[in-house]
């Protein structure tokens, strides 16, 4: 093969390989000539975030996701940030949707306002994604549709019930009109009765109060009843008297003459 053809092949292969490498670096958003640093962020759920997704601060792209590793309880996301980004101790990082249809995500960071800078050796705890994923929105929409169907069914099925309720209400209204005088009388009597019952209640409460005092006195073994209930000696005497009386009555039945002597003359 002549030399010119060899040179052409060489040029062709070199150009294609160069274009391939440059294109690949461009597509991967490789930051040529920019200096930066890396930061680890821990998320419970990365919600579809992928490597090379951008990191935005106040809406400006200032970095990218360079690595993601599964860890116990979540995912450790490593992001690269430009040196111009100065993170403070109260910096936050959340994952947000860029476009719902494609599911593209971005890490949105707030650099914070604290005086102390963020310790880059420590892992920043990422804030949960408060947005809704397309799947979640789909599930919500499905449930809303189901609810609408139920409501539609309820309204159409409940039309008869509503009509019945309306008829009943009109009948009640008619009854009220017809018996207005009687109802007034009943209410007036009810008022009088209530007045009477008020006096009765006062008297009753006084009686209860007195009964309470009496019971208190009995419980404190005061008065005759109190002593009668709680005095054991009195009880024993009563029992003994009762027994003697029984004996006496038995003897009287047996020989009445012993105790009763009747003479006419």
């Amino acid at each position: 093969m002549n030399r010119s053809k060899t040179v052409k092949v060489g040029i062709f292969i070199t150009i294609i390989l160069a274009l391939f490498v440059i294109g690949q670096l461009w597509l991967l958003r490789f930051n040529v000539g920019k200096e930066g640093y890396c930061l680890n962020i821990f998320y419970n759920d990365v919600s579809g975030l992928t490597i090379n997704d951008p990191v935005r601060i106040y809406g400006i792209k200032k970095g990218k996701v360079v690595d993601m590793k599964m860890q116990k309880g979540g995912v450790l996301v490593r992001v690269w940030l430009e040196n111009s980004v100065k993170l403070k101790k109260d910096a936050t990082a959340s994952i947000q949707d860029v476009a719902m249809i494609s599911g593209t995500k971005t890490v949105v960071m707030d650099p914070g306002i604290a005086d102390e800078p963020l310790d880059l050796s420590r892992t920043l705890i990422g804030q949960p994604n408060l947005g809704l994923s397309t799947v979640e929105i789909g599930a919500i929409v499905t449930k809303v549709e189901e609810l609408i169907e139920i409501l539609k069914g309820g309204v159409s099925g409940g039309t008869g019930v509503l009509k019945n309720f309306q008829v009943t209400l009109s009948e009640v209204e008619m009854l009220l009109k017809e018996n207005r005088a009687g109802i007034k009388r009943v209410i007036a009597r009810g008022g009088e009765s209530l007045e009477d019952s008020k006096d009765i209640m006062n008297e009753l409460s006084l009686t209860i109060e007195e009964a309470k005092n009496t019971l208190n006195q009995i419980n404190s073994r005061k008065g005759t009843i109190g002593k009668l209930i709680y005095d054991e000696e009195l009880y024993n005497n009563l029992v003994s008297t009762s027994s003697n009386l029984d004996t006496l009555l038995a003897e009287i039945r047996k020989d009445p003459g012993k105790f009763v002597n009747i003479s006419v003359f």
Binding site: M1, K5, K8, V9
Partner: peptide, 16 residues
């Protein structure tokens, strides 16, 4: 290799 380069030229450059 010389033959291979000739074939690369034929297959690539001439198809470009």
């Amino acid at each position: 290799f010389d033959l291979s380069l000739g074939q690369i030229y034929f297959q690539a450059i001439e198809s470009l």
